[in-house]
Structure formats: structure tokens, C-alpha cells
Write a protein that binds this DNA or RNA. Structure first.
Lengths: 344, 344
DNA sequence: CCGGCTACTGTAAGCGCTTACAATTGCGGT
DNA sequence: ACCGCAATTGTAAGCGCTTACAGTAGCCGG
């Protein structure tokens, strides 16, 4: 005999009493509770989680699904650790455990989630890197599992998401560059099927329009998350008959290549080409001149996601249907020296 | 009625048969199995994991405990992502799930593990960042939970660990510097109570001795994992009456500060001070001149840990006591331009 | 002295699954 | 016709915990 049953026998009480004492049920004599707690502690007793969740139907834990991308390990930069902290900050307060569930290969993400989402592992899910069209959303909805995504998808359905305020970033960046007198403002947009590409590009178009500037697809460049893409960006932009005088970089690391190539051409960031990055990344912290970029609180992002999930978890009396949170996290501009007045 | 029972009723068979069919038990008529699998698929049936583990006593999953350090988010991402990949590469093949368990605050790591380690969550654990004296090791041993640590501890007990071959790194670095004619070789050692500090320092002493060089505590500097610590390192080393001509940096990011300060002093890495980093980190990828450092395959590290854990998991007939793996992962020298012959 | 109340504890029925064991069937061999 | 055996399926007992419900005891007011 083991677990609660052994404790019960040794103390000469029923398993029900032990269970109650351990779970803080008020219907237990203070003295009895004391005895139980002591014995439990003495024996290093820890409840079997599987039995617990089976009996209660909840696990008191939430999952955070991330995808491992062999192409791009370095790429995640310091994103997740900050986000995890933010999540934990709100989850531990609720007595919830966080399980990060890394999916081995991005392609397998659907079956992976299907397996994990089967009742009994977690009470809710947070998904990272939502795609434009993401089957996982429907899967979770049809399984009636509470979830939140980090990133919007194109699903028309109503669900909770937290995303970065790309619209705000682009608006601020364009305003700033236009204020500096720039009129040929290039932009790089991410490759891949994450949904922020189109969002970013759309924001770019909208903001050019707001300033009455024409949209020229020739200075909208696809670029991945590798610093050496920066070289090609410079070459392309400056080789135009009507060269861009400023560029907004979606992936900030590409700035490294941009700086390098400019240097080779004896050109100077901020003077010969104004550069604004979109989310400060570790790798560019040491560029000189400092890059103008946007700062994001990863902790806030994580906390927001966790809170949005909490709001959906069964809890104290909640009759009315859950409210879905759809929130864009603001980023703050950190002015550097990589942009400035247009010359010539 | 739900789960397996519903399937069983609809198909007019017993739950036992359904369970057997689903689990690939050979004692099921091929036709019956087919029917069951079809029905299960049609209904999107997924087994309740809690019930499964309760009945079987195993969870088919392993945990990887990491500690969140608000001081030090950057950089760790890069590390963990690579390691996770390596782990997944071996775990998915075995049908095991990996749960990353982030502990909110490093101080709470013991109670955190105690809670998680209670039977029923994972079958085994991998611990990151083992301390010199780490209670978690005894906890896991007394709970009879298979585990592996990333990093040695001072525990005399026999258990599985995977660590970096700091001894090899230091030996190679010292040999190289001595070969360049250096005799005053400084070193930085990490702050904090992780166990690699003392190991590193001991290796340093041993290797100096091997070359008949004196050990001078004055050029053994504590340094954390922040680039700006590099400035102080330079100032200290060069202000000595007998300045060091070379330095081995435990935390490679400090090289950024070192480069910066040298630059301010109009000195040059590789000529005025030879610098060797210990493990290539993302942040220093773009330093010029390139830093001489050591490359570690994070994937290999992760795979090794996962394999060491697998070896302990109950499986096919294994009567003899498990063998504990104690393995130091080799790092390979990547020569750069940050070190060279001693001048003067 | 009794009914009813509060405070506590015990009994036992699950939670959804696995699995040892029993039961059934159909077969070939004698 | 009967036995033994293999193949297949069913029965039911858990796995360790929670919890509705049913006691039991002590107390009060009437």
C-alpha cells in the first residue's frame, strides 16, 4: 500500500480525511490536519498527479507549445526566456504549473498538438508562432481546450491572441522617417508563413498612404532572419535608379549585414542610409552607431498571454461565456543614431 | 459515458478489446483492430493521459528543468533551443514526450522539483545548471526517479551527468597561449554557485603547473555574464605591475567589453592582449577581429543527456543495475584573430 | 429526554484506462 | 466423440486520489 492510503493507515484515519487535510478542506479538525501534514512531510509524501487529475478532471497546469527549427536555432534569440518569466509571474500565483512543450519539427506541429491536447495533460494551451493559416486553432476549438496564441492568424473565428503591435511600430517608424524628410522608405518583410509578414507589409502600405507616399514593390524586400541578408539589402536598395534613403528592418539582425556592407562602400548608417529596426535583439546591441529600434517587454508579453488564458480557465463562478482577449502589445521607440535627416 | 467506454459500446466490444487494439496488442483480431482504429479516428478519440499513467505507472514523458533568471535572460535562449533539439532528436524516436519545466525563481528550485517529481508527471528528469552543492540530486535519488544533470556537482554519489569538457578547453587554451610565448595568462571565472567555476579554476591551475608557470590569484578574476564586465577586466589586468598578456574568458560575452575598453585605450585584441573565449556565443559572432573560441554542439549535448536518461528508464529486459553515464563533451577550438604571439 | 444542529469522520463510488485471468470458440489430432 | 491448444474476447480488479453522502458524537434549547 502506498500514497495516501499508507498515511491514512498509519495515522488511523480514513483516506478521505487525509485527502481533505492535504487539500485544505475546512471540514477537518485542526489537530487532525496538523497530524496529517506532519506525517506527510516526514515521509516526503507527494501526491500522485496522475491520480489527482483523473479524479478531479483538471491538471492545474498549462502548456506552452513552441516549435524547434533546426534552420534557425540562433534565431529565436532571447525571446522565450523572457516570455516564460512573464508567464510564470502570473501562473505561479494561481498555483498553475507551466509545461513548455517543444515540438521537434515544425511540420509535425498538428499531430504533436493533437497528442498533447488529449485531456489529462494540461488544462490550457498557449501557442507560439501562429501561422497565417493554422489548423491548430480549429483543433483546439473543437477540443474545447482553452488556449491563447502568440500571434494572430487569419482564422475568422473568435479566440484569444496576443500579438505585437506591428501597426504601431510601422506607424511610428514611418512618421519618424518622414519627419526626417525621407520619401523613399524601404522595408524588409519576413519570409516564411508566419502571419506577421502580411500584417507588417499592410501596415507599411497604410502608413505610406497616410503620408501620401507611393507604394513601390521594388523597395519591399523579403529577408530572412540572418545577418548576411543585410548585404543584399544594401546592394539592392542603393542600386535602384531612385535609391531608397531609409529602410525599416523587420528582422533587426539583418542590420549587421547592412552596417557591414555600408562600411565596405564607405557609407555611413544614419547619414547615407537611415535604418530603423523593429524589435531590439541581443545581437545588435553593440552596433555602432547604435541602431534606432523598438523595445518590447517580453515579460509583459508572457504575462498578457498567461492572463488571457487564465480568463478562460474554469474557476470561481463564471456563468457567462468567456471573453476572448485580443491584444496588441505596444513597443517603445528607442532612438539611436542609425537614422537621421535625409541628405541631398 | 466517454472515452474508451463509448467507443466500446458503439462497436459492441469490451473496453479491454478497444484498449488492446489501440495499444497494438497482438492478441486482437486484425479485423477488430481495424474497426476500432477507424472509429477512434473518426471520433477524434485521444486517450486520457492521466488515466493511462495511473493505470500503467509510467507517463512516457521526461522533464527538463530549467531555472529562469531575471538577471540573465539573454543568451540562455540560444543555449536551450539547441539543447532541446538534441534531446528531441533522441526522445521522439522512443515515443517519449519532453516537458520543459521552467522554475520561476532559482531559489525555489528545490520545492519546485519536489512537486514535479511526485510520481505521475514524468518518468525521468534532466536538470540544467547543477550547483556545486545541489540538494536536488539527493531528492531525486531518494525518490528513485531516473535523472541526468547538465553539469557536475560535488555530490560524491554516483549518478549520471553530462558536462562540458572544461578541462580540455583550458588545456587547449593554455597550450596555445604558451605556444605563443605568453607566461602571464589571466583567466576569468564565473560568479555564482554553479559548479563549473571551481572546475574551471582548478583546470587553470593544473595547466599552469603543467607548463611550470606560477599561479597568481591576482589575475584570476570573477566575472559575471555581462558584456560590461569586460571593461573592468581590462583595467585590472593592465594596471598590474606585471600585466597579463593573455586572458581566457569564461563567459565569452565579456569579450565585448574587453574589446571596447581596449579600443578606448588604443590597444588591439590579439596584439596587445591575447583573448580566448570558452564557448562561442551568439552575441560575439560579429566582433572584429574574430575571437578565438571553442565551439560546442548544443545538439550533441542535448542528445547525450537524453541518451543518458534513456539508459536509466525501465525498458526491455534489464536486470543488472543501471550504468551511470558521466560524460564530458569535447569542444573544438575555432582559431580567430584575437590571440597571437606575445610582443615585447 | 428528545429533536435538531454543528463539527467531524468514514464509506464507497467513481475518474478512464490497463491487464491478469477466465471464458468461449474453433481447430486438429487421437 | 473427446482433449488440448491457440486465438480471441470479456470480466473485473485495480492504479491513487477526490468527494457525495452517510454516519457519529457532542451540544443546545425546549
Amino acid at each position: 500500500m502506498r500514497g495516501i492510503a499508507r498515511l491514512a493507515r498509519e495515522l488511523g484515519v480514513s483516506t478521505a480525511t487525509v485527502s481533505r487535510a492535504l487539500n485544505g478542506n475546512p471540514n477537518v479538525n485542526a489537530e487532525t490536519r496538523q497530524k496529517v501534514l506532519e506525517a506527510a512531510h516526514r515521509q516526503g509524501y507527494a501526491p500522485n498527479q496522475a491520480a489527482r487529475s483523473l479524479a478531479q478532471g483538471v491538471t492545474r497546469s498549462v502548456g506552452f507549445m513552441i516549435e524547434l527549427d533546426p534552420e534557425n536555432t540562433a534565431g529565436t534569440d532571447y525571446f522565450f526566456m523572457g516570455v516564460l518569466e512573464g508567464m510564470q509571474n502570473v501562473l505561479v500565483g494561481q498555483g498553475l504549473d507551466l509545461f513548455v512543450l517543444p515540438c521537434a519539427r515544425a511540420q509535425d506541429n498538428f499531430v504533436f498538438l493533437q497528442r498533447i491536447a488529449s485531456r489529462g495533460v494540461v488544462d490550457g494551451m498557449i501557442l507560439a508562432e501562429t501561422r497565417r493559416i493554422d489548423q491548430r486553432i480549429e483543433l483546439l476549438q473543437s477540443s474545447h481546450i482553452p488556449f491563447v496564441t502568440l500571434g494572430r492568424s487569419d482564422s475568422g473565428r473568435d479566440y484569444s491572441w496576443i500579438d505585437l503591435d506591428f501597426e504601431g511600430v510601422v506607424a511610428t517608424a514611418v512618421d519618424r522617417l518622414v519627419g526626417f524628410g525621407h520619401r523613399r522608405i524601404a522595408v524588409t518583410v519576413p519570409t516564411g508563413d508566419a502571419n506577421y509578414g502580411p500584417i507588417f507589409e499592410q501596415a507599411y502600405r497604410d502608413n505610406l498612404a497616410r503620408h501620401g507616399l507611393p507604394y513601390d514593390p521594388d523597395i519591399v524586400l523579403k529577408a530572412g532572419r540572418r545577418e548576411d541578408e543585410g548585404d543584399a539589402i544594401v546592394d539592392h536598395l542603393l542600386s535602384r535608379p531612385d535609391p531608397a534613403t531609409a529602410v525599416i528592418l523587420f528582422h533587426e539582425v539583418t542590420a549587421i549585414g547592412v552596417y557591414r556592407r555600408l562600411d565596405q562602400l564607405r557609407l555611413q548608417p544614419g547619414r547615407d542610409l537611415s535604418i530603423i529596426g523593429c524589435r531590439s535583439e541581443d545581437a545588435v546591441r553593440f552596433l555602432a552607431p547604435e541602431i534606432t529600434c523598438f523595445h518590447l517587454s517580453l515579460q509583459d508579453l508572457g504575462s498578457a498571454a498567461a492572463r488571457a488564458l487564465l480568463a478562460q480557465l474554469p474557476s470561481s463562478a463564471r456563468r457567462e461565456p468567456v471573453e476572448h482577449v485580443q491584444q496588441r502589445m505596444p513597443l517603445t521607440l528607442v532612438p539611436g543614431k542609425s537614422d537621421g535627416p535625409r541628405i541631398g
